[in-house]
Design a protein around this nucleic acid. Structure first.
Lengths: 220, 220
DNA sequence: TCTCAAGTTGAAAAATGTCTCCACTTCGCG
DNA sequence: CGCGAAGTGGAGACATTTTTCAACTTGAGA
């Protein structure tokens, strides 16, 4: 049970592997091939597999403290004087971290690459984020139909923009976040009852933007 | 130059291949393995490769008219009495189509799988969408800082939600669209000058949601 | 210094998907 | 019919990434 410490050279190799994985995953995401990581660390694949038999093990070791940092962020945000400021501050800080680390971004958006420890961290973040929302709703800074699920949705949305523009325009996500947060404050409540039946049947939708039912495609 | 028509059996096989590809790509996206498509059509891979040497050729044949349908949608939307209604109507119809067809969704979000013909179609859509925005801005139905690029951004955002929830909750994208459109009308203008310097340096960001610079992480 | 458990390595197998090739089948014209 | 061009199928070469393994190397305790 009590694991004896690694031999000194082995420990050194392990650190090199972690360092290489940290950099490569920050740049290219969780999926970097084991072979690439091992080469970058100057080791063989076998060594990497010996230390981290599952990619989960590697990811868990690397990102536990990143996730913890986001948890801390959320705690700080909950102590903000103004609930709305706390919420927006949290979102901005969180996305800034994600913008600098593609792997972290993938993890926080639910890529199931981590172990229980990371999953628990993400769950704690989700819980705290839900409190941030409820606090803002309670203070009248958000309409009452806004739910924690909306925050997950925004996370998906802004994350997608980040992915699409990380190379070309690495600050574009800020606009996406601004639009999303403004939308949260001003969105109409959703109509789950009406919506439910119409959603699956686009045929029910008006065929023209002026409301009258016109033929689908005018002859060319 | 003038291609002679296919032998009758060959033409039949070609149609079967197209039909299989249509269904599989609608469900699973543009990346369906050639082997899977061929099997589903009751043919061999060789036949599929003979008819469509590049995946582009297949995609182009399959989706030209889908893209054209979206172009038509945009034209109709431009004829709407109210510019804002035209814009929202267009977005909803477009996403309804995408919700029912994963491959179309990938194409419209810029997956470079199609040939020139499809790319031109997408360009026309982008152009018309830009006109929809400009028309709404001109009529005072959108703030003047809203640009066609914001529409692309929303496309990415709603598309990401669709991808994440196609299985579990296929109507969730509607909420994402509602929030995004509301955000468009109510977002603050972005601050490119200020923003530029702060973006790359999260260290400039307030360390606490109340503004004062507090130590990064309180000792545990 | 000697020894051997711990550690390392890269070749090879397994899995997945793309693309080619050629022996075989079949249509349809004469 | 019977023939030849058109068409077919799927095994196999190639590429990518994961995973294992047996031969080889080395740190460090006696």
């Amino acid at each position: 049970m009590t694991e004896r410490p690694l031999r000194r050279d082995a420990e050194r190799n392990r650190q090199r592997l972690l360092e290489a994985a940290r950099e490569l995953m920050a740049r290219d995401g969780l999926g970097v091939p084991y072979e690439v990581i091992a080469r970058a660390a100057g080791s063989g694949m076998g060594t990497l597999y010996r230390r981290f038999p599952q990619r989960q093990d590697l990811v868990d070791t690397l990102f536990a403290e990143h996730i913890e940092a986001v948890v801390t962020l959320a705690h700080q945000a909950l102590r903000a004087d103004d609930p709305w400021t706390g919420l927006t501050w949290f979102m901005e800080r969180q996305f800034e971290l994600e913008a600098g680390n593609r792997a972290l971004s993938e993890l926080l958006r639910g890529a199931q690459q981590g172990t229980d420890r990371l999953a628990q961290g993400c769950a704690r973040i989700a819980e705290l984020a839900a409190q941030l929302i409820e606090r803002a709703v309670g203070a009248g800074r958000l309409p009452s139909h806004v739910t924690p699920r909306d925050l997950e949705t925004i996370h998906l949305m802004v994350g997608a923009v980040m992915d699409a523009s990380r190379q070309h325009d690495p600050t574009r996500w800020r606009r996406a976040l601004a639009v999303s947060l403004a939308g949260l404050r001003h969105a109409e409540p959703s109509h789950p009852c009406e919506g439910e039946q119409a959603d699956a049947h686009p045929d029910n939708a008006p065929a023209s933007p002026n409301g009258e039912q016109t033929p689908h495609v005018p002859a060319p």
